[in-house]
Amino acid sequence: METYDLSQNHIVTPPEEIALSTNQLQVYYGSGSRASMTDASLSFPRFQITALIGASGSGKSTYLRSLNRMNDRIARIEGEIMYRGTNINSPKVNVYEVRKHIGMVFQKPNPFAKSISENITFALKAAGITNRQELNERVETSLKEAALWNEVKDDLNKSALALSGGQQQRLCIARALAMKPDILLLDEPASALDPISTTKLEVTLKELTKNYTIIIVTHNMQQASRISAYTAFFHLGHVIEYDQTEKIFQTPEIQATHDYVTGNFG
Protein backbone atom coordinates (compact mmCIF):
# COMPACT_ATOMS: atom_id res chain seq x y z
CA MET A 1 0.00 0.00 0.00
CA GLU A 2 1.27 3.39 -0.92
CA THR A 3 1.96 5.72 1.95
CA TYR A 4 0.61 9.20 1.76
CA ASP A 5 1.66 12.32 3.57
CA LEU A 6 -1.08 12.55 6.17
CA SER A 7 -0.26 16.13 7.09
CA GLN A 8 -1.17 17.25 3.61
CA ASN A 9 -4.81 18.19 3.50
CA HIS A 10 -7.36 20.36 1.84
CA ILE A 11 -10.35 21.32 3.93
CA VAL A 12 -12.87 23.97 2.96
CA THR A 13 -15.43 25.72 5.12
CA PRO A 14 -18.76 25.70 3.31
CA PRO A 15 -20.19 29.18 2.75
CA GLU A 16 -23.68 28.01 3.79
CA GLU A 17 -25.11 28.24 7.29
CA ILE A 18 -23.30 25.73 9.48
CA ALA A 19 -25.32 23.24 11.53
CA LEU A 20 -22.49 21.48 13.30
CA SER A 21 -18.73 21.79 13.32
CA THR A 22 -15.81 20.13 14.99
CA ASN A 23 -12.57 21.74 15.97
CA GLN A 24 -9.42 19.65 16.39
CA LEU A 25 -11.37 16.56 17.38
CA GLN A 26 -9.19 13.72 18.67
CA VAL A 27 -10.43 10.28 19.65
CA TYR A 28 -8.49 7.88 21.84
CA TYR A 29 -9.69 4.31 22.37
CA GLY A 30 -8.95 2.55 25.63
CA SER A 31 -6.15 3.94 27.72
CA GLY A 32 -3.82 4.26 24.74
CA SER A 33 -2.18 7.52 23.90
CA ARG A 34 -2.40 6.94 20.15
CA ALA A 35 -5.27 8.87 18.64
CA SER A 36 -7.65 6.90 16.39
CA MET A 37 -8.82 10.21 15.02
CA THR A 38 -6.49 13.17 14.71
CA ASP A 39 -7.33 16.85 14.52
CA ALA A 40 -10.58 16.52 12.65
CA SER A 41 -11.90 20.01 11.92
CA LEU A 42 -14.98 19.98 9.73
CA SER A 43 -18.07 22.17 9.30
CA PHE A 44 -21.35 20.69 8.13
CA PRO A 45 -23.77 22.86 6.17
CA ARG A 46 -27.37 23.02 7.29
CA PHE A 47 -30.08 21.17 5.31
CA GLN A 48 -27.52 19.35 3.18
CA ILE A 49 -26.19 15.84 3.02
CA THR A 50 -22.51 15.48 3.83
CA ALA A 51 -20.85 12.16 3.07
CA LEU A 52 -17.89 10.74 4.97
CA ILE A 53 -15.92 8.32 2.81
CA GLY A 54 -12.74 6.35 3.30
CA ALA A 55 -11.44 2.80 3.62
CA SER A 56 -12.26 0.54 6.58
CA GLY A 57 -10.38 1.71 9.64
CA SER A 58 -10.02 5.26 8.33
CA GLY A 59 -11.84 6.63 11.37
CA LYS A 60 -14.99 7.88 9.64
CA SER A 61 -17.38 5.87 11.82
CA THR A 62 -15.40 6.72 14.92
CA TYR A 63 -15.70 10.36 14.00
CA LEU A 64 -19.43 10.12 13.28
CA ARG A 65 -20.18 8.34 16.55
CA SER A 66 -18.31 10.99 18.47
CA LEU A 67 -20.60 13.72 17.15
CA ASN A 68 -23.54 12.73 19.37
CA ARG A 69 -21.32 11.35 22.12
CA MET A 70 -22.13 7.69 21.36
CA ASN A 71 -18.49 6.85 21.97
CA ASP A 72 -18.48 8.26 25.49
CA ARG A 73 -18.27 4.89 27.19
CA ILE A 74 -15.51 3.44 25.05
CA ALA A 75 -13.34 6.35 24.02
CA ARG A 76 -11.83 9.60 25.22
CA ILE A 77 -12.63 12.51 22.97
CA GLU A 78 -10.76 15.79 22.94
CA GLY A 79 -11.50 18.94 21.01
CA GLU A 80 -14.63 20.91 20.36
CA ILE A 81 -17.96 19.92 18.81
CA MET A 82 -19.82 23.17 18.23
CA TYR A 83 -23.62 23.01 17.97
CA ARG A 84 -25.70 26.19 18.19
CA GLY A 85 -22.83 28.02 19.80
CA THR A 86 -22.25 25.40 22.50
CA ASN A 87 -19.38 22.98 22.78
CA ILE A 88 -21.32 19.74 23.22
CA ASN A 89 -18.16 17.81 23.92
CA SER A 90 -17.99 19.45 27.33
CA PRO A 91 -18.54 17.09 30.28
CA LYS A 92 -21.11 19.55 31.65
CA VAL A 93 -23.41 19.08 28.69
CA ASN A 94 -26.47 16.85 29.11
CA VAL A 95 -25.68 14.05 26.66
CA TYR A 96 -29.27 12.77 26.63
CA GLU A 97 -30.43 16.15 25.38
CA VAL A 98 -27.63 16.19 22.79
CA ARG A 99 -28.76 12.83 21.42
CA LYS A 100 -32.32 14.07 21.10
CA HIS A 101 -31.07 16.88 18.86
CA ILE A 102 -28.59 14.75 16.97
CA GLY A 103 -30.20 11.44 16.08
CA MET A 104 -28.47 8.37 14.74
CA VAL A 105 -29.22 5.46 12.42
CA PHE A 106 -26.93 2.45 12.38
CA GLN A 107 -25.41 0.07 9.90
CA LYS A 108 -27.66 -2.86 10.67
CA PRO A 109 -31.36 -2.12 11.11
CA ASN A 110 -32.02 -2.39 14.84
CA PRO A 111 -35.73 -2.03 15.51
CA PHE A 112 -36.85 -2.91 19.02
CA ALA A 113 -38.66 -6.18 19.59
CA LYS A 114 -41.89 -4.22 19.86
CA SER A 115 -44.73 -3.21 17.58
CA ILE A 116 -44.11 -0.70 14.79
CA SER A 117 -45.84 2.13 16.62
CA GLU A 118 -44.21 1.27 19.95
CA ASN A 119 -40.82 1.43 18.26
CA ILE A 120 -41.50 5.08 17.63
CA THR A 121 -43.42 5.98 20.78
CA PHE A 122 -41.15 4.29 23.31
CA ALA A 123 -38.51 7.02 23.42
CA LEU A 124 -41.19 9.72 23.12
CA LYS A 125 -42.95 8.39 26.20
CA ALA A 126 -39.63 8.22 28.03
CA ALA A 127 -39.14 11.87 27.10
CA GLY A 128 -42.42 12.70 28.81
CA ILE A 129 -44.88 12.86 25.92
CA THR A 130 -48.02 11.06 27.08
CA ASN A 131 -50.79 12.68 25.04
CA ARG A 132 -52.26 9.86 22.93
CA GLN A 133 -53.14 12.19 20.09
CA GLU A 134 -49.70 13.72 19.89
CA LEU A 135 -48.07 10.28 19.98
CA ASN A 136 -50.26 9.07 17.12
CA GLU A 137 -49.51 12.17 15.16
CA ARG A 138 -45.76 11.78 15.62
CA VAL A 139 -45.96 8.14 14.55
CA GLU A 140 -47.77 9.12 11.37
CA THR A 141 -45.59 12.12 10.56
CA SER A 142 -42.30 10.35 11.11
CA LEU A 143 -43.37 7.27 9.16
CA LYS A 144 -44.44 9.52 6.29
CA GLU A 145 -41.13 11.38 6.40
CA ALA A 146 -39.30 8.06 6.25
CA ALA A 147 -41.51 6.97 3.33
CA LEU A 148 -42.80 3.96 5.20
CA TRP A 149 -46.32 5.07 6.10
CA ASN A 150 -48.09 3.66 3.05
CA GLU A 151 -46.53 0.25 3.57
CA VAL A 152 -47.30 -0.13 7.26
CA LYS A 153 -50.26 2.11 8.11
CA ASP A 154 -52.57 -0.89 8.58
CA ASP A 155 -50.03 -2.89 10.58
CA LEU A 156 -48.93 -0.40 13.21
CA ASN A 157 -49.53 -2.91 15.98
CA LYS A 158 -47.61 -5.70 14.31
CA SER A 159 -44.11 -6.58 15.39
CA ALA A 160 -41.39 -4.47 13.77
CA LEU A 161 -39.25 -7.59 13.44
CA ALA A 162 -41.65 -8.94 10.81
CA LEU A 163 -40.72 -6.11 8.41
CA SER A 164 -38.17 -6.54 5.62
CA GLY A 165 -34.62 -5.24 6.10
CA GLY A 166 -35.24 -2.12 4.05
CA GLN A 167 -38.47 -1.38 5.87
CA GLN A 168 -36.77 -1.94 9.22
CA GLN A 169 -34.08 0.57 8.30
CA ARG A 170 -36.68 3.16 7.30
CA LEU A 171 -38.48 2.46 10.57
CA CYS A 172 -35.23 3.19 12.39
CA ILE A 173 -35.02 6.48 10.50
CA ALA A 174 -38.63 7.25 11.44
CA ARG A 175 -37.84 6.41 15.04
CA ALA A 176 -34.95 8.87 15.02
CA LEU A 177 -37.04 11.54 13.24
CA ALA A 178 -39.89 11.22 15.75
CA MET A 179 -37.62 12.82 18.36
CA LYS A 180 -37.61 15.89 16.08
CA PRO A 181 -33.84 16.10 15.82
CA ASP A 182 -31.92 18.78 13.98
CA ILE A 183 -29.25 16.57 12.61
CA LEU A 184 -29.32 12.95 11.55
CA LEU A 185 -26.16 10.85 11.63
CA LEU A 186 -26.22 7.71 9.49
CA ASP A 187 -23.54 5.05 9.79
CA GLU A 188 -23.52 3.09 6.51
CA PRO A 189 -27.31 2.80 6.61
CA ALA A 190 -27.58 0.98 3.28
CA SER A 191 -24.79 -1.56 3.62
CA ALA A 192 -27.16 -4.33 4.73
CA LEU A 193 -29.82 -3.53 2.12
CA ASP A 194 -30.52 -4.74 -1.40
CA PRO A 195 -30.24 -2.29 -4.34
CA ILE A 196 -33.97 -1.52 -4.50
CA SER A 197 -34.19 -0.75 -0.79
CA THR A 198 -31.02 1.30 -1.12
CA THR A 199 -32.51 3.46 -3.86
CA LYS A 200 -35.65 3.99 -1.79
CA LEU A 201 -33.51 4.97 1.17
CA GLU A 202 -31.50 7.45 -0.89
CA VAL A 203 -34.64 9.08 -2.25
CA THR A 204 -35.94 9.33 1.30
CA LEU A 205 -32.73 10.93 2.53
CA LYS A 206 -32.79 13.54 -0.24
CA GLU A 207 -36.39 14.37 0.71
CA LEU A 208 -35.32 14.79 4.31
CA THR A 209 -32.84 17.57 3.57
CA LYS A 210 -35.83 19.93 3.46
CA ASN A 211 -35.91 19.82 7.24
CA TYR A 212 -32.81 18.02 8.42
CA THR A 213 -29.05 18.18 8.22
CA ILE A 214 -27.66 14.77 7.34
CA ILE A 215 -24.18 13.37 7.82
CA ILE A 216 -23.72 9.92 6.34
CA VAL A 217 -20.83 7.46 6.45
CA THR A 218 -20.73 5.31 3.36
CA HIS A 219 -18.49 2.74 1.70
CA ASN A 220 -20.31 3.23 -1.52
CA MET A 221 -18.76 6.04 -3.54
CA GLN A 222 -21.58 6.13 -6.08
CA GLN A 223 -23.93 6.65 -3.19
CA ALA A 224 -21.85 9.51 -1.87
CA SER A 225 -21.73 11.19 -5.27
CA ARG A 226 -25.46 10.63 -5.85
CA ILE A 227 -26.82 12.13 -2.68
CA SER A 228 -24.33 14.40 -0.96
CA ALA A 229 -23.49 18.05 -1.41
CA TYR A 230 -20.20 17.84 0.45
CA THR A 231 -17.82 14.94 0.94
CA ALA A 232 -15.01 14.37 3.40
CA PHE A 233 -12.33 11.80 2.67
CA PHE A 234 -10.81 10.07 5.69
CA HIS A 235 -7.58 8.12 5.73
CA LEU A 236 -5.87 6.45 8.72
CA GLY A 237 -7.56 8.69 11.26
CA HIS A 238 -6.98 11.91 9.36
CA VAL A 239 -9.32 14.07 7.34
CA ILE A 240 -7.45 14.38 4.06
CA GLU A 241 -9.86 16.37 1.97
CA TYR A 242 -13.19 18.08 2.44
CA ASP A 243 -14.95 19.91 -0.33
CA GLN A 244 -18.02 19.93 -2.54
CA THR A 245 -18.81 16.38 -3.62
CA GLU A 246 -18.34 17.22 -7.30
CA LYS A 247 -14.83 18.52 -6.63
CA ILE A 248 -13.86 15.51 -4.53
CA PHE A 249 -14.90 13.09 -7.24
CA GLN A 250 -13.76 15.02 -10.30
CA THR A 251 -10.88 17.31 -9.41
CA PRO A 252 -9.55 16.41 -5.97
CA GLU A 253 -6.61 18.43 -4.67
CA ILE A 254 -4.82 15.62 -2.85
CA GLN A 255 -3.25 12.55 -4.45
CA ALA A 256 -4.68 10.16 -1.82
CA THR A 257 -8.21 11.35 -2.50
CA HIS A 258 -7.68 11.00 -6.21
CA ASP A 259 -6.40 7.46 -5.82
CA TYR A 260 -9.27 6.50 -3.54
CA VAL A 261 -12.11 7.83 -5.67
CA THR A 262 -10.64 6.36 -8.83
CA GLY A 263 -10.16 2.98 -7.22
CA ASN A 264 -6.35 2.93 -7.37
CA PHE A 265 -6.08 2.74 -3.65
CA GLY A 266 -3.91 0.37 -1.62
Binding site: N68, M70, Y96, E97, V98, R99, K100, G103, M104, F106, K108, N110, P111, F112, A113, K114, F122, A123, A126, A127, C172, R175, A176, M179
Partner: peptide, 27 residues
Protein backbone atom coordinates in the same frame (compact mmCIF):
# COMPACT_ATOMS: atom_id res chain seq x y z
CA UNK B 1 -29.85 -9.33 23.01
CA UNK B 2 -27.67 -7.68 20.34
CA UNK B 3 -25.64 -4.62 21.29
CA UNK B 4 -27.29 -2.73 18.47
CA UNK B 5 -30.45 -2.64 20.62
CA UNK B 6 -28.57 -0.86 23.39
CA UNK B 7 -27.10 1.59 20.88
CA UNK B 8 -30.55 2.26 19.48
CA UNK B 9 -31.85 3.12 22.93
CA UNK B 10 -28.91 5.32 23.85
CA UNK B 11 -29.02 7.13 20.50
CA UNK B 12 -32.62 8.17 21.18
CA UNK B 13 -31.54 10.01 24.30
CA UNK B 14 -32.65 7.26 26.68
CA UNK B 15 -30.66 6.63 29.83
CA UNK B 16 -28.81 3.38 30.26
CA UNK B 17 -31.29 2.13 32.85
CA UNK B 18 -34.30 3.09 30.78
CA UNK B 19 -32.82 1.22 27.83
CA UNK B 20 -32.25 -1.88 29.96
CA UNK B 21 -35.68 -1.78 31.56
CA UNK B 22 -37.71 -0.90 28.50
CA UNK B 23 -35.83 -2.58 25.66
CA UNK B 24 -33.29 -5.15 26.80
CA UNK B 25 -35.34 -6.85 29.52
CA UNK B 26 -38.48 -7.29 27.38
CA UNK B 27 -36.39 -8.65 24.52
Amino acid sequence: VPDSQREAGISLGLSNWRTIRGIILPA
